[in-house]
Design a protein around this nucleic acid. Structure first.
Lengths: 187, 187
DNA sequence: CCTTTCTTTTGACATATGTCAAAAAGAGAA
DNA sequence: TTCTCTTTTTGACATATGTCAAAAGAAAGG
């Protein structure tokens, strides 16, 4: 729980009252490897914060699994589309390792927004930061070569190489596993 | 100005007080074709709402201009990264047609947040919607073929074909102009 | 240790897309 | 209309990446 509050302090420093209100509705949960935190076709009612472990988000696109996202410690995790629209998710979120997470329900979050505008500010700021990161990834996906994207991963997210199987990483980079293997081999 | 309030009603209905507060700090401005609303290397201090006209956002990437975004009537426009971080922008936003926009400054917006939590809620919700749209584009960019992306454009944003030159559209789709020309010719 | 299973690499080839150059088509102005 | 300028299309070829199949390597269980 402390990890969580330390982390969100980077975005916006809450006063004690809001902090305690959040603490009351956050539930610590443990799940084992391969559990799905969000499931295609089902509405995702929770936002999760990863305390320990890692997850991947993937779509089933034309019969193929495509991994679009990885989450590690200190990441917020949910099917964002489903969580904010209250409609069935298009993607799955799967635990790659056993995980401990903090969960907050959609309804609890809305109540916090109403009662503590500070919480809404915090979330606005976090969302904005996640937006900017997604923008960067979008530009990389659209305008950089596979080699450049892999180099970027090495520079900024080397931990992914350690903890995720190659097939998922290849998909995350938008290339086939074979091509990734060749890029790694410096060919 | 009415267009603007009609539009934001779709996201969240403000009370009269917040609405008037916003109206006070929104400035209508007109700019002619090719003006830059945001400039690489400069901090972008305003958020714009396009009342009339259209714009494109582009990066200079390895000496090449890459168009990553188009904005038309009813779009919010800014260098998002620069606007929220107060750091120099990496991209340019250029008017493709003469435009009328509504502008709000960063400082005015923060004051609104402090005084009218409703405004912060509105912005949170708008941000969330823009996030989901960006996620869709990201998945398309990373996991769909050029042909599929063009078909998506035809389905969901045919107005872009009408109002933007082919070179920009090709870049927006992440392909060369020649390839786009061939895709259009059904080859 | 050996056997089984899963992951990663390699090879051969197909395909999509990029690049450069030229031709064609379209839009404005005189 | 004709001339000029810009945009779009076409052609020839190069390159990056995908696909399928097989081999090699690593991990897990007995």
């Amino acid at each position: 729980m402390n990890n969580f509050f330390d982390h969100i302090d980077h975005f916006y420093k809450l006063n004690e009252e809001s902090r305690q209100a959040i603490e009351k509705v956050l539930h610590q949960q443990s799940f084992s490897k391969n559990t799905l935190l969000a499931t295609e076709g089902k509405v995702c009612h929770h936002m999760y914060f990863v305390e320990k472990g890692c997850v991947r988000g993937y779509y089933n696109l034309d019969g193929k699994e495509v991994t679009y996202w990885f989450g590690f410690e200190y990441s917020f995790v949910t099917s964002f589309y489903s969580f904010i629209s209250r409609k069935p998710a298009f993607e799955n979120i799967q635990l790659i390792e056993d995980c401990t997470v903090l969960a907050i329900s959609y309804d609890d979050l809305q109540k916090l927004y109403d009662k503590y505008p500070e919480v809404e500010r915090l979330v606005r700021i976090i969302n904005e930061n996640y937006y900017v990161r997604l923008e960067e990834r979008f530009v990389a996906a659209q305008f950089k070569t596979a080699k450049e994207r892999y180099a970027g991963l090495l520079d900024f997210s080397p931990h992914i190489l350690q903890r995720m199987p190659l097939g998922y990483i290849a998909s995350y980079l938008g290339i086939s596993q074979e091509t990734l293997s060749r890029i790694r081999g410096k060919i």
